[in-house]
Amino acid sequence: MSIQHFRVALIPFFAAFCLPVFAHPETLVKVKDAEDQLGARVGYIELDLNSGKILESFRPEERFPMMSTFKVLLCGAVLSRVDAGQEQLGRRIHYSQNDLVKYSPVTEKHLTDGMTVRELCSAAITMSDNTAANLLLTTIGGPKELTAFLHNMGDHVTRLDRWEPELNEAIPNDERDTTMPAAMATTLRKLLTGELLTLASRQQLIDWMEADKVAGPLLRSALPAGWFIADKSGASERGSRGIIAALGPDGKPSRIVVIYTTGSQATMDERNRQIAEIGASLIKHW
């Protein structure tokens, strides 16, 4: 058993032996400061991975655009179909130039040979490839079927209504393609630790998130040596930015963190910096 498999397999085991986890309101002070700095709403939640207890939250039940963070949920739905014998990670999917949409750094290189379902999930999560996400959405029946999958998990909040890139429109008060921090954190925890997916599929999902290559300026920039993080970021119109993550010290995840912001006029660099500073406060007061 690899170190990674050891880590995921023991998450339920550690729940019975973990020390009490204490919240630190200092992080919420930073979240509120980020709102002031960005001139935008910020949603935040910090969840204990083992118990599911909410440690801190700010606007946990307000809607925010999901942006590309939905791609983790999408690959969770794909893995659920794999577990049920309805899909194979090794199945190759062929597509054409007409299928390519904006920001497809991986799929645009494989027009001649296509990509496997496994490769598409990797591209969608680690590189946020939009065509990969659309191709995967097609395999499960489209955005409405992803919403149905989430409903069956008990998440009646999170919804996907459109495809890439239209889902990134982020119109104020538009509930399409949105979630709430509390709903996203709970759903992510179920995917990573619950019985919905097999152990192998849970491991695969967290491996893809751990290999994320496009979230460096966010929480990863504040991470001390030896800490673990598996994450997925997102960005969209109207100053929207977000990240969902499982992270913790000693090389294993122990908390879920979800951060969303929307409605800012700030630059992408400034949005990144504010999220990184929230992460730094979280780690300092861990």
Rank of each mutant, 00 (worst) to 15 (best):
Q4P: 15
F6I: 15
R7L: 09
L10N: 07
I11Q: 07
I11D: 03
P12H: 13
V21E: 00
T27L: 07
Q37L: 12
L38V: 06
L38P: 07
G43W: 01
G43C: 02
Y44R: 01
Y44I: 05
K53V: 14
E56A: 11
S57Y: 08
F58S: 08
R59P: 10
R59T: 10
P60T: 08
M67H: 07
T69A: 05
F70L: 01
A77D: 08
V78R: 00
V78L: 05
S80R: 12
S80G: 10
E87M: 09
L89Q: 04
H94A: 10
H94I: 13
S96E: 12
Q97I: 14
D99I: 09
Y103E: 03
S104L: 05
E108D: 11
T112M: 12
M115I: 06
M115A: 05
M115R: 04
E119T: 05
A124S: 09
M127C: 10
L135E: 04
T138L: 12
G142S: 04
E145L: 09
T147I: 05
A148T: 15
F149V: 07
N152D: 14
G154T: 00
R159V: 04
L160H: 04
D161C: 02
R162L: 02
W163A: 06
E164S: 03
E166G: 08
A170S: 13
I171E: 14
P172M: 11
N173R: 09
N173Y: 10
E175V: 14
R176S: 09
R176T: 04
T178W: 01
P181I: 03
P181S: 02
T193I: 13
G194D: 10
L197I: 06
L197T: 02
T198P: 04
T198C: 11
T198E: 11
A200T: 12
S201P: 14
I206T: 11
D207V: 10
A215I: 02
L218R: 01
S221Y: 09
S221R: 12
L223P: 02
G226T: 08
W227T: 00
I229L: 07
I229N: 00
D231R: 03
G234C: 00
S236V: 05
R238K: 13
I243Q: 02
I244A: 05
I244Q: 01
A245C: 08
D250C: 12
D250P: 06
K252V: 13
S254W: 07
I256S: 02
I256T: 00
I259D: 00
T261M: 15
G263E: 09
S264M: 07
A266R: 11
D269K: 11
D269S: 10
D269N: 10
R271V: 12
N272G: 07
R273T: 11
A276D: 05
I278V: 06
G279C: 09
K284G: 08
